[in-house]
Amino acid sequence: MRELDLDLDAFEGPFDLLLTLLLREELEPIEIDIAAIVLAFVERLAEREEIDLEACGEFLVLVSALLELKARLLFPDEAAELDALEPEAAAEELARRLGEYRRMKEAAVWLAERLAGERDRWFRLGPAPLAPQPERRLAPQDSNALAVALRALAVPPPAVSLSHMALRFPPVSQFLDRFRTLLSRRRRFDFESEVIGLSRVEQAVAFLALLELRKSGEIALSQAAPFAPIRIARVDDERITTWTARSA
């Protein structure tokens, strides 16, 4: 790769000299056409019959680092972290990355040598034997108790009652008759005192009956305040009371 000669607008010479000038800051990465470097390298590869993977890998690392340097310089305000990366720092970064890669390459070489040195070590490989499963131990059982349990299960279950699902509405007429009878004996009464002890449904039907009587003009309804007792009076009495109050 060192032999790669470049003929660029800003530089003419070997690739490693270009790198050195960049590291010395004697050449601006912005002025370098990196695509032209890649083209030159690809042309050199095409000329050779064999591909040198080592050289290709090193070239890729260097060119990508150069590309990153150039991108950082071209877009200095793109990210805050780039502000601190001066050309010298960028060169340091390039050297650091190369150093890191070199160490890993050396480590790979060490591993390869180690592997070669261990070729006469043979050992058994395979799945580990299964660990024993914990044994399930049942407490002593009584067969009669089992029979009782089975017998209990054999009994058909009781029929499920659905009675609670049906709402029973007593007829409104029942309460109409009841209230009319009551009004024939008494001139007025409280609704609450008459429906106390009845279910919520029965109380609702009783109230409907009350509305029916009011609609037909048979009764007058009064309530002093919300939630106060509802008072029911015969209409005749109510008219008399009203008339008396007005005449007074």
Binding site: D16, L19, T20, L21, A91, G99, K105, E106
Partner: peptide, 19 residues
């Protein structure tokens, strides 16, 4: 293992000087 960043940089500079 391997050379550190400073060594690489120095090596590059040496190559440049030689050329």
């Amino acid at each position: 293992l391997g050379a550190d960043g400073e060594q690489i940089r120095e090596r590059l500079l040496e190559v440049a000087s030689a050329r």
